[in-house]
Design a binder for these strands. Structure first.
Length: 489
DNA sequence: CAGTTCAGAGTATTAATTCC
DNA sequence: GGAATTAATACTCTGAACTG
């Protein structure tokens, strides 16, 4: 009876043992083989998990030659599963790469020709804007599809006229400004000089769009998105507004940006109330019980997560801090509290693992890029000795180089394994940027980086030793089993 | 249950431009 | 020169479906 209640994990362990003979109890039920709680697994299961277990596997996987760690002598490269993921990802990325510029260009030209033909047919010049330019992996063409393929084909021009009317109205309203325009003469010049100044034109010097345009865009955008089913770029084409028009934070507005971001339950205030938490099941540890005991903490976490994406990541990181060994809040619970998706939680979790518990989120890629461009420009204007010192620094502190050398892996394939993931880059300042940092702080940073690197290396070595030990145990066991079997035969 | 994948959507940045 | 606008681009997040 107790055996039947053993968890799946335990069952997994059970079927790893060789089963010499199927003993039958008096009751007629099969006798279960003795359960082992060691981390052994069956050949099939081990292969499914992507672990490398045989000598054959070892020989195959490292450049076709037997691998041996320069420090600990382990024949393993950290974790083959990660290697496989990296390879698969690289393979998939190559399959889903962006279209060639010529292909995209050709697509846009075709769109323009078709739209021009439509404009001629309708005798509305504005209609030459009526096409969707979006082309990331595949052409979107939402506007074209709506005009050609949806509903009665005979009504295509009716639908085109409808979109064209919206476009005309949008273009008309787009000319209006937030501030009253001065009266113009026949040459489109203000009748009175400095007329705008007298009307007290505020920030933006009269560029700001009118409320009428804003209201029109907001209303019709909903219709185009929800009813006509156009993509965002398609809506922008029809309603003559830009990406920034929606998202740019204006200094002259209280709410900053015009669009209400409706991207998550969190921002929409649709998260589960704390009172309801205990009614939901999250995991075996029942993390949701915290809603009864630590409600203030949860409320604080939720409030912080609501403020920004970056803060949300910090909160997730805090929630992922292990307590009592490796026990930590489950993904479902974190999702309930913060509203963040599993993908993000998973990313943060990985970053925490890679960095040994660094809670700070990585710098946004564009900021990183912009900084490196600025630093590069700055470096070029710096005196030569500083640049040289900088180069040395990069050579010393770049763990990926060293680790890759140790493992003898081809570059690019081990970036995840090498303890130098994307998420970690924030804690390691761009070497190029260090050109502008004083020598003292540079030395301090260098010291910190070296400590981080040493810590990572220790972790890797520990992992390898563990795997080595496990393999030896397995090989011992399997050789024993083989001997027993041979003896039996 | 932890983690991955992927399409679609949102976000952040640059560079050019306009206007005063 | 400063504050607004734009398009283009690249990056990140969400959420559902899926895997092991």
């Amino acid at each position: 009876m107790e055996h039947d209640e053993i968890t799946d994990d335990a069952t997994d362990e059970d079927d790893q043992k060789p089963q010499p003979s199927e003993d039958i109890r008096k009751s007629g039920r099969k006798k279960r083989p003795p359960a082992s709680y060691s981390p052994e697994r069956t050949e099939i299961k081990r292969r499914r998990l992507g672990e490398f277990v045989t000598q054959q596997d070892i020989d195959k996987d490292v450049k076709g030659e037997p691998f041996s760690c320069g420090r600990c002598g382990s024949p393993y490269v950290v974790n083959k599963r990660n290697l496989i993921f990296v390879k698969q990802r690289a393979k998939r990325a190559s399959l889903t790469k962006k279209p060639e510029p010529e292909v995209k260009e050709h697509y846009l030209q075709t769109c323009q020709v078709e739209a021009q033909a439509l404009a001629n047919r309708l005798q509305k010049p504005e209609a030459n804007r009526l096409f969707c330019p979006e082309y990331s992996k595949e052409p979107c063409g939402c506007i074209q599809k709506y005009l050609k393929n949806q509903g009665d084909p005979g009504q295509a021009d009716v639908r085109a006229r409808e979109l064209c009317d919206l476009l005309q109205k949008a273009l008309q309203l787009a000319k209006l400004k937030f501030y009253p325009l001065p009266e113009l003469d026949s040459n489109d010049k203000p009748i009175r000089k400095n007329a705008r100044k007298k009307n007290f034109v505020g920030l933006g010097m009269g560029h700001k769009r009118s409320r009428a345009f804003e209201a029109f865009v907001m209303e019709k955008r909903q219709y185009l998105r929800n009813v006509v089913k156009l993509c965002e770029r398609g809506c922008q084409k029809v309603l003559a507004y830009s990406n920034n028009f929606l998202h740019k934070r204006l200094r002259t507005e209280k709410d900053n940006c015009r669009v209400v971001i409706q991207r998550s339950k969190r921002t929409m205030g649709l998260l589960t109330a704390f009172e309801e938490f205990s009614k939901n099941k999250c995991c075996v540890d029942n993390c949701v019980k915290m809603a009864d005991t630590h409600r203030k903490l949860l409320a604080d976490w939720r409030e912080r997560a609501r403020t920004s994406q970056i803060e949300a990541r910090r909160v997730i990181a805090e929630m992922l801090i292990p307590s009592a060994g490796c026990s930590k809040n489950c993904y479902n619970f974190i999702n309930m509290v913060t509203g963040s998706s599993k993908g993000v939680i998973s990313k943060v979790s990985q970053q925490m693992l890679w960095t040994g518990g660094d809670k700070e989120p990585p710098v946004h890629g564009l900021v990183k890029k912009a900084n490196s461009i600025k630093a590069e420009a700055h470096t070029q204007s710096q005196p030569q000795p500083l640049i040289k010192a900088n180069t040395d620094v990069s050579a010393v502190v770049n763990p990926s180089l060293d680790v890759q050398d140790i493992y003898g892996q081809p570059s690019g394939e081990l970036e995840q394994v090498s303890g130098h993931p994307e998420g970690q880059t924030h804690s390691q300042p761009d070497p190029k940027q260090q050109a502008v940092i004083s020598p003292d702080s540079q030395q301090q940073q260098l010291l910190q980086l070296q400590q981080i690197f040493e810590h990572q290396q220790q972790q890797l070595i520990q992992q390898q030793l563990l795997q080595h030990t496990l393999l030896n145990e397995r090989m011992d066991n399997s050789s024993c089993t083989a001997q027993v079997e041979n003896g039996g035969n």
